[in-house]
Simulated scan of single mutants.
Amino acid sequence: MDKLKAYEQLKKDLENAAVKRIMCGQQGMEDSDIHHEINVSLRLSHPNIVRLMAVARTESCFLLAAEYIHGATLQQVLHTDSCLVKLEGDDAGFISLDLSMAVEYIHAQRIIHQDIKPANVMVHHPSKKAVLTDWGMANIRDTVMLRQGSKFTAQATGPAGGTYLYMAPECILMFEEASFQTDMWSLGATYLEILTGSAPWMVKKQRELAALMATKTPPHALSHLSDKNSFLGGLVSYDPDSRPSASDVVKFLKSGLDLTSRYGYKW
């Protein structure tokens, strides 16, 4: 009976699932890479990370069914006037906190997202809860713990990937591997956009960004960041070791928000 109830609940959940297709052989990925990614995804459980509910395999592709988030991407929220989600009051701060808690969680699991940006964040309507998505779909070998023989590495690393406006300078300039610190730069660039309403960089091409980074030019949006959020500016430091951790950011954001008003309690 319990199995039947579980099946019926899953069937109900999947009626409103968002389904993503990964073609077999896409970007040189092997089936074993996709299986490993799926296994890690199914083990993750956090209120600010999209939940993978079911997986199916056809002859040509994998189908991944994730929970459907009614709302809009953070990119749409920030830059589309007609978006159904409107930010008011401390909403930007709470969305930033939601993201920092999601990143704190995956880093504790030794997982690197590698492509944190507003387009990979869903904001629920009407609660305005932020959920991190696509952390393991676009660059599977790069964003999840890699296998070496029959063992796992202690930390997920891989060739630099992601979206250049949010990528760390060490990835743009020196093609370094992804790390927890590169995730924190991407998170910082995303915060700049959330808190200032402007893209982190005013460039149109990656080579233009590389030229600015070569002279250690700060992201353009940093000049619009308020003094009270200056701590978050440290996330876009050119020194990776000086960037705050996700746990540091969680503590900072909690200290400046009325947690009871949003969550009903403090913790």
Rank of each mutant, 00 (worst) to 15 (best):
G28K: 05
M29A: 10
E30P: 03
E30C: 06
E30A: 13
E30I: 11
S32P: 00
D33G: 00
D33L: 12
D33M: 12
D33H: 11
I34Y: 00
I34N: 00
H35G: 04
H35W: 06
H36Y: 05
H36Q: 12
E37F: 06
E37D: 05
E37G: 01
E37A: 04
I38A: 04
I38N: 03
N39W: 01
N39R: 15
N39L: 13
N39M: 12
V40G: 01
V40L: 09
L42I: 03
L42M: 00
L42V: 00
R43C: 03
R43D: 02
R43L: 04
R43T: 02
R43V: 00
L44N: 01
L44Q: 03
L44S: 02
S45T: 00
H46R: 02
H46L: 02
P47D: 01
P47W: 04
P47S: 06
N48P: 03
I49D: 03
I49L: 15
I49V: 07
I49Y: 09
V50D: 05
V50W: 06
V50Y: 05
R51H: 06
R51N: 14
R51M: 07
R51P: 03
M53H: 08
M53W: 02
M53Q: 14
M53C: 14
M53S: 12
A54I: 01
A54Q: 14
A54F: 00
A54L: 12
V55A: 14
A56H: 07
T58W: 07
T58G: 05
T58S: 12
E59Y: 08
E59H: 09
E59G: 14
E59L: 09
E59F: 08
S60F: 10
S60H: 10
S60K: 15
C61N: 13
F62C: 08
F62K: 09
L63H: 09
L63W: 04
L63I: 04
L63Q: 15
L64P: 03
A65D: 10
A65M: 14
A65K: 11
A65S: 14
A65E: 10
E67K: 02
E67S: 12
Y68C: 15
I69H: 08
I69C: 08
I69N: 08
H70F: 11
G71W: 09
T73R: 07
T73E: 11
T73N: 09
L74P: 11
L74R: 01
L74T: 02
L74G: 11
Q75M: 13
Q76T: 15
Q76E: 15
L78Q: 01
L78D: 02
H79K: 02
H79M: 11
T80V: 11
T80D: 15
T80N: 13
T80E: 14
